[in-house]
């Protein structure tokens, strides 16, 4: 069963495996009104990132760059641990570091969160995208950008509740984490999970990952993190990248992870009411004009109007005289 997810730690098979994730597995396709339902329901996958186990080594970033063959270039010191300073078209995942003083214990806590696409069940990027098939969602939950269909408008950047997609100035298309859809297609876990030395990043079916998270949360709670919990925000229908947070009651302390992410109501209005009301308004105007043209008499200039004008000109003072 090549399409059933396996954990990232297992080694790949020795025999070549054909990719088992394709157009027939699409659950959603951007700007597509008549997408046929997927032919099969794949097991929903998820990546679980346990921030309490992360040591900030950035092996995940290196693995991501290597697997995706991107070139983030030589970094610049911007005075923080993040390197590069932000996500960019060549860096799909980024360790974000924040120093937080716990007001209850007065302890300094170094919070490290691996940022990147959350693979929302209800993806704002896909909703905003105007180009058919530039953003797709597979039935296993992976949200992927299909670069040959991307027109580089950047609407997805406005649609994303997590500020993830980045527009490339080189090829004018937008990049983000693919959840290693090409690896998942052959039964492998994402490169970042494979590389993680502490297994803070694990990958598997969403169900398994939730069960695994429960164990981790229980462990954290037993060690005094009473607000430990799973970050799988319902506002975007849940995500296929989840976090175990030791302070799940305040996600924002982890480098501004949104407390209650949702697709912005502004984006919903733009892609909802405005689209339909707008089309209707323009249609009604055009139809109304056409109908008026057919039914009503046009306004025509009569012979007598011309005669009036001639008489007026006859009586008028000639050039210069009247000024």
């Amino acid at each position: 069963m090549s399409n059933s997810p396996i954990t990232a730690v297992s080694n790949p098979p020795v025999q070549p495996v054909s990719a088992d994730l394709g157009p027939r597995d699409l659950k959603r396709r951007s700007a597509t009104l008549d997408l046929p339902p997927p032919e099969r329901q794949l097991t929903e996958v998820a990546k679980l990132i346990d921030v309490s186990k992360c040591i900030g080594c950035k092996a995940c970033q290196s693995a991501c760059v290597e697997w995706n063959d991107t070139d983030p270039g030589v970094g610049e010191n911007v005075g923080v641990y993040e390197n590069p300073g932000d996500l960019n078209p060549n860096m799909f995942t980024l360790m974000r570091f924040s120093e937080w003083v716990n007001p209850e214990t007065d302890d300094l806590e170094w919070l490290i969160r691996k940022d990147g696409c959350m693979h929302c069940e209800d993806p704002g990027c896909l909703k905003a995208c105007p180009s058919p098939g530039a953003i797709v969602q597979y039935s296993n939950g992976i949200v992927d950008f299909i670069h040959e269909n991307c027109i580089g408008c950047g609407y997805c950047i406005k649609g994303c509740p997590f500020n993830i997609p980045r527009l490339s100035k080189a090829d004018h298309t937008v990049y983000k984490c693919t959840l290693c859809s090409d690896r998942v297609a052959v039964g492998q876990g994402p490169a970042c999970a494979k590389a993680c030395p502490t297994q803070a990043i694990v990958f598997g079916s969403k169900e398994d990952m939730k069960a695994h998270a429960e164990e981790r949360i229980e462990d954290l709670k037993s060690r005094g993190y009473e607000n430990a919990g799973l970050y799988d925000p319902a506002g975007v229908g849940g995500t296929h990248v989840m976090y175990v947070l030791h302070h799940a009651d305040k996600p924002h302390i982890y480098s501004d992870l949104p407390d209650r992410p949702e697709i912005s109501p502004v984006v919903e209005t733009w892609k909802g009411a405005v689209k339909y009301v707008g089309l209707a308004a323009m249609g009604i105007m055009a139809a109304g004009a056409a109908l008026h043209g057919l039914i009503a008499k046009p306004s025509t200039v009569k012979r007598e109007d011309e005669e009036h004008a001639e008489a007026l000109v006859e009586e008028a003072p000639k050039n210069g005289e009247g000024v």
Binding site: K302, E306, H308, A309, L312
Partner: peptide
């Protein structure tokens, strides 16, 4: 325009 148009 014609004078008639302007008149009208």
């Amino acid at each position: 325009v014609t004078g008639g148009w302007a008149w009208k």
